[in-house]
Simulated assay, not measured.
Amino acid sequence: MLESSSLAELAKSEHFLRRLTDVTLGAIEVFDLDQQRTLYVNRSIATQLGYSDEEIADMGAGLVPALMHPDDLPQFVAHRQSLCSLADHETADFEYRLREHSGGWRWMQNRDVVFARHATGAVSQIIGNALDISERKTAQEKIRHSEEFHRLAFDLSPVGMTNFDGERRFTKVNQRFCEITGYAADELLRMNICDFTHPDDRATNQFNIDQLHAGVVDHYDMEKRYIRKDGSVCWVRVTVRMVRDATGQRLYSIGVVQDINERRHREQALRESEAFSWSVLESSPDCATVLDREGRRQTMNRNGQHLMEIDDFAPWLGQPWWSLKPEPFAALAVEAVEQAKRGETARFQAFHRRPRVRRSGGT
């Protein structure tokens, strides 16, 4: 039988522990596994969820299942059953949602330990501490959405996207890059940039990478050629930027690759066409002059310069085409330029003045 002083000390101890659990941030629960009922819960659960003490009391011994999200209940039941085999030094964690008084849901993280055992050693009671992790869950969800967005932007980009390390080996590629190179993703992840860069472009490419890694530039942009898996050559425009951590250390490089093969072929065809057109003008026995949209001289073929007695075309470069035509022929030339700007063909006859140019022996 306990003396009165011992009973008083016990009462003080119980009061101390109860007040201690009431000021604990987490929700403390003692749960009896045999009776499958809550024996004790502190006031924190009411504070966290917005209920009054009376409302929590009215929910009775099954308040946690009563407040739990339906989707989490089956896992919660399985969690409680697994506690029967919990060792004294072990903890068991579980995350779930509880309904707030306002109707919303709060995420909780529960950590349980053995509180009491039967004489046989079987677990009879557990004590758990549940912390509100809603803010952490919200932050994790935002990060997940951000990562998902960037993953989709990478995978579904209409241009080639790559990540590669300091050894120039690919660590990530998207489908468009596979289409540009002709290689499958698993093949590319075993390769580096130089493996299919055209030999004539490798030196320039390596110089750009060295400048990037040395911190001389934060990105580079170049046009180069890939040798595709089928052996064909493809022109691409590559933009590469270094990704660094907060301390400035290199993490990886990200590359954006655009297929410009068609554009380069058009440019080559245009150059060849211009060269052909100029060869036709040069072979003409007539005076052929190329004008800009404002009617200013840009060039004149050699036969034209001979006919016009022009030894040096430089003084006439950029001068109006009609500057050597007297009136009213100058006006006809101006109107002919306007007709050409409208897509029409203009024809007229006119006299030209011979240009007065300074020659080495006089005028």
Rank of each mutant, 00 (worst) to 15 (best):
M1V: 08
L2M: 13
S5T: 10
K12F: 15
T21H: 15
V23G: 11
V23P: 01
T24V: 13
F31H: 02
F31Q: 02
D32R: 04
Q36F: 06
R37A: 11
A46R: 00
T47A: 11
G50Y: 00
I56F: 07
G60W: 02
A61S: 08
L63F: 10
L63S: 01
L63A: 03
P65N: 05
M68N: 07
H69I: 06
P70W: 11
L73P: 06
Q75W: 05
F76R: 01
V77I: 08
A87E: 11
A87Q: 14
F94Q: 03
L98I: 01
R99S: 06
S102W: 08
G104L: 10
W105K: 12
Q109S: 03
N110S: 07
V114A: 08
F115D: 05
A119Y: 08
T120M: 05
G121V: 08
A122M: 05
I133V: 11
I133M: 07
I133P: 06
S134M: 09
S134E: 02
K137M: 10
A139K: 08
K142T: 03
E147N: 08
H150A: 04
R151N: 09
A153F: 08
P158R: 11
V159H: 02
V159N: 14
G160Q: 12
G160S: 12
G160H: 01
D165Y: 09
D165C: 11
G166T: 07
E167Y: 06
E167N: 12
T171C: 13
K172V: 09
V173H: 04
V173S: 02
Q175T: 07
C178I: 03
C178Q: 09
T181Q: 00
G182P: 07
Y183C: 10
A184W: 04
L188T: 01
L189A: 06
L189C: 04
I193F: 02
C194H: 07
D195W: 00
H198W: 09
D200T: 08
A203K: 12
T204W: 12
N205K: 07
Q206S: 13
F207P: 06
N208H: 15
I209G: 12
L212I: 06
H213V: 12
V217Q: 14
D221L: 15
M222L: 15
M222E: 15
E223V: 15
R225M: 02
G231N: 15
S232V: 06
S232D: 14
V238C: 15
V240H: 14
Q249S: 08
L251W: 10
Q258C: 11
D259C: 13
N261V: 10
N261Q: 14
H265Y: 12
A269V: 14
S273I: 13
W278C: 01
S279Q: 13
V280I: 14
P285S: 03
P285F: 03
P285H: 05
T289F: 06
D292K: 10
G295D: 08
R297C: 04
M300Y: 01
G304V: 05
H306Q: 09
F313L: 11
A314F: 04
W316H: 03
W316N: 01
W321Q: 10
W321R: 03
W322Q: 00
L324G: 00
P326M: 07
E327L: 09
A330C: 06
A331R: 11
T345W: 15
A346W: 13
F351L: 05
H352M: 03
H352I: 02
H352R: 02
R359H: 13
S360P: 04
S360W: 08
T363Q: 14
